[in-house]
Nucleic acid binder design. Structure first.
Lengths: 331, 331
DNA sequence: TTGAAAGCGCTACCAA
DNA sequence: TTGGTAGCGCTTTCAA
């Protein structure tokens, strides 16, 4: 920066002002601009952050980047935050709370302005770190009973119950559930919980649950899960899956066995992924708007930052994202 | 850090050493550790970076995070780099060179130790920025004729040619191509180029090309593209798609029209996505190992950093990733 | 509208 | 094995 200042014949301060967009005489600004171009100067963000006490980082934690769910949420966040000059600092927890804790610790070192994480479950240490950090926190994809700060999500339990009701209304009586085996995917577990609750509420007999595969649940989990379900409960007439991915795999397994969907077996998914709309038959699913979760989270973070700048503390709130049963051919 | 030092009864320097893992007497280290825990101290990475002149950042640019291709590459990078305490700084170019340039400029401000970008095509300004930055650069997913520094990828042209040959060997004569309309997805364009070249080399008549949809090409692009192809060239007997995603959509469209795959229409994909293995019929594809590209890129970056630390300049090289035709039922 | 000085929190370097 | 000092490149603050 001194070099630029020397070349432009001004002080470092003026260069700094030009970069920050503060008021500077047009002629001066022009000279500084030229010096910057000539030297190929790139300001050092670390020095700026240190000096001003504020970084341009927003920390974001998702369980997995390979799931389109969360990458869509990240896209939503980027859309909102990037125009404000904020840079995402992304971490991938792999559905492990310990990893989440390590990542929070490591990301916090960069003094992010705020942080968004996925889910309501965290280690005690994570919670403590976040509370101590003093920055706005958003928990996404769930509505915690005891949020750290702000939450943006929906009740996976209720969404799953709604899907069971949908199947029951269509006349299915022997409804199974295909989920993941992981004890860490709390959103998946909540869906299972919702399934059990609604099966019980409707008096549809014993739950028929197959849990198989690590999160994120992918297409390859659906076929073996469907096979296991049929082996144990051959008279099942409908199945709801923890994700459209496994629903797709399950439908393919039905086709392989010559079972028609939904004639012999109705199959419902969750998440309204693209495959649900593209495959044949199209999959009945729960639409949950991952991109919208990202947008709303970004907006909540910006609001919290603005409130902070204005000296007022933003009231933390829980923002409910609507879900919707999308009825298609498969169930 | 002064607080920690005071509580532990040592100097700031000793605290710094404990954090950096340098040699410190066990007893001292223990006292410092306790002080850190007691105060909930989190070191400021920006100050550290400024002072030491080296950040812990690795900048990574991908065209899209929603494509499993690139998120797998990112996973590979994380796997290699995280154990070395390096933090990814991720940017999403949306297949736009201008956006790439803006992102490079913005990421460079954080003084990353090295940078990985996708593809061989960049604006002049981007190239200049990267060259001036003086940090190791890796271009991924392609083998540029004129690489900036190191490259890790494969020839999309040759991979596409191999697929056309595969189809021709199976006896297909009237082979179409379904690709995206974007002029920015150079990997997609290279595949198209390979298709044209091989069709010509084999004397298979006029190319039958449908270009439709923005990158990243998804499942929803396949059906309309297949429809357009059949409208213009009804006697087509095989089609190769720029991605397994569109191949899947194309197959679904065939099913809807009562065309059997591969009996009436053979369909080949590209990328060996999960859907290729899970759907029915399973899709013949080109396997290209996105995760491996991430791993090798990470290793190349580490090697360059180590060489730099040792004072030797690492020779930039082009690392070829093998691709492979995976023959399945669809073609 | 511009400049000078002080200092952000840490690490490199040299001294003890 | 530990401590003191200087300074990384910027922004804040106040003065001109």
């Amino acid at each position: 920066m001194s070099d630029v200042a020397r070349v432009a014949g001004v002080s470092k301060m003026t260069v700094s002002r030009v970069l920050a967009g503060h008021r500077v005489a047009d002629k001066t600004r022009e000279r500084v601009r030229q010096a910057i171009d000539k030297l190929g100067y790139v300001a050092d963000a670390a020095a700026g952050a240190l000096s001003s006490g504020r970084s341009e980082f927003v920390a974001v934690l998702v369980p997995s980047l390979s799931s389109s769910n969360f990458s869509d949420t990240v896209r939503g966040l980027t859309t909102v935050l990037e125009p404000h000059g904020l840079q995402l600092l992304l971490g991938d927890t792999d559905y492990e709370l310990d990893r989440e804790e390590r990542l929070v610790r490591s990301l916090l070192r960069h003094q992010p302005r705020c942080i968004a994480l996925t889910g309501a479950q965290h280690t005690d240490a994570t919670r403590k770190l976040l509370e101590r950090s003093g920055i706005p926190v958003v928990e996404m994809w769930d509505l915690p009973t005891n949020p750290i700060d702000t939450a943006v999500g929906f009740s996976n339990v209720r969404a799953a119950r709604a899907m069971v009701r949908h199947l029951a209304e269509r006349g299915y009586q022997r409804i199974g559930f295909l989920g993941g085996a992981s004890a860490l995917d709390t959103r998946g577990l909540d869906r299972l919980k919702g399934y059990r609750a609604e099966i019980k509420a409707l008096g549809l007999g014993e739950p028929r649950v197959v849990r198989l595969g690590d999160s994120p649940i992918t297409m390859s989990h659906g076929a073996p899960a469907m096979a296991a379900l049929l082996a144990q409960w051959p008279d099942t007439d409908a199945v709801m899956c923890v994700s459209d991915m496994s629903a797709f795999g399950a439908i393919m397994e039905c086709h392989r066995r010559g079972l028609s969907v939904p004639g012999d077996m109705a199959v419902a998914g969750f998440g309204n992924f693209e495959v649900a709309e593209c495959c044949h038959p199209r999959i009945t699913s729960v639409s949950v708007d991952p991109y919208g979760i990202g947008l709303r989270t970004g907006e909540a973070l910006l609001a919290a930052l603005e409130a902070r700048d204005a000296g007022t503390e933003a009231a933390s709130q829980s923002i409910r994202i609507e879900f919707e049963i999308v009825a298609r051919e498969s169930a």
